[in-house]
């Protein structure tokens, strides 16, 4: 994550735009049946490889814990401070105590309550943005790759163009034109993210397009949309999932950077990144509880998603099993 357009593309994303390059991608071993029928057997293999990576298993635990903490937690840990409409000015910047396990912030919000709220926002934005970016990018890439020719050229130039405009610029200008809101941030993060899956899937599609079974479906009169939806996308599912995992991690990082630059979710909402960047302003007061918990949450979740992504990538790289 170099958040703002400096993002190091994932491996696949940077492969040159030339036909045939998709062959270099670590993809799902394509079964001869073509209609992704072999996924069941493959699933066991994938799980075996995945579970070899113990840290990835721990990471799943961490993510589940965080999801429970952020989304279920507020039902059990109810403080007036977690209700973020009413600030408690009587107790600002209070250090941790039995009443406030991680102290309070300058507005008197309970830090634990805020971590739940901020985490829910961060995770929702990251998951939604990654989801939207992946779905849109996959279809964009698959259509571009499958159609080929002029359509492909135009679609890929669109990708190049958007890739060439710094994300931050898009963000600042769009934030000025539209009302800042939760969905706007989801949209912006997704806008920055869809290009990678689009290029990725296009490469994959270019390869798959030449495979015998696709040729066969075509010969039998199968339509383009059916081929894309039933053959190409299912066969690229490994690549898609791996990429989506990294997208989530990167979205959390981008969100933190946006918070630092003053483009976070509008108050009274917050996200972990905004909590961290706000908390740093109070470092001089020794308010460690405003800095470390949010920082640790960001790092834990991002690292976990990366581990999962890495393990998934290994798992989908089935050729490795031939050792």
């Amino acid at each position: 994550m170099i958040p703002l357009t400096g993002d190091l593309p994932d491996k696949e994303a940077i492969l040159p735009d030339v036909p045939g390059m998709g062959a270099e991608l670590p993809g799902v071993e394509v079964t001869e049946a073509g209609e992704a029928g072999g996924i069941g057997g493959l699933g066991r293999v994938i799980w075996r490889v995945f579970s070899e990576n113990k840290l990835a298993l721990v990471s799943i635990g961490v993510i589940v814990f965080m999801l429970l903490f952020c989304f279920v937690g507020p039902h059990f840990y109810v403080t007036p401070q977690a209700n973020f409409v009413v600030t408690s000015v009587g107790q600002v910047l209070a250090p941790p105590s039995s009443q406030h396990l991680l102290g309070t912030d300058p507005n008197g919000y309970d830090t634990v309550g805020r971590l739940m709220v901020g985490g829910a926002t961060a995770l929702e934005i990251a998951l939604l943005a990654a989801g939207i970016a992946t779905i849109f990018g996959v279809f964009f890439g698959a259509i571009s790759g499958y159609a080929g020719g002029a359509v492909d050229a135009v679609m890929m130039r669109i990708v190049d163009t958007v890739l060439s405009v710094p994300t931050l610029f898009l963000l600042i200008v769009i934030a000025a034109i539209l009302h800042t809101s939760f969905w706007l941030i989801v949209f912006i993060v997704a806008l920055a993210a869809w290009l990678v899956p689009a290029r990725l899937i296009r490469g994959e599609t270019l390869t798959l397009r030449t495979r015998e079974y696709v040729q066969a479906v075509r010969a039998m009169g199968g339509g383009g949309s059916r081929i894309v939806a039933r053959h190409i996308i299912p066969n690229a599912v490994g690549t898609i999932i791996v990429n989506a995992t990294f997208q989530i991690a990167d979205a959390i990082g981008l969100l933190a950077a946006l918070g630092f630059l003053g483009f976070g979710v509008p108050a009274p909402g917050t996200s972990w990144g905004q909590m961290l960047s706000d908390g740093i302003s109070y470092a001089q007061e020794g308010a460690w509880w405003l800095i470390y918990p949010a920082g640790i949450c960001i790092i834990l979740v991002t690292v976990s998603f990366n581990y999962i992504g890495d393990a998934l990538r290994d798992a989908f790289e089935v050729r490795l099993q031939r050792r």
Binding site: A249, A257, F260, I280, I299, V303, N306
Partner: peptide, 17 residues
């Protein structure tokens, strides 16, 4: 695990932080 974790931690830490 140790080295990967370290590199991921740096990766995951917001730059400003």
């Amino acid at each position: 695990y140790a080295l990967t974790t370290l590199s991921f931690i740096f990766y995951a830490t917001p730059t400003f932080f």
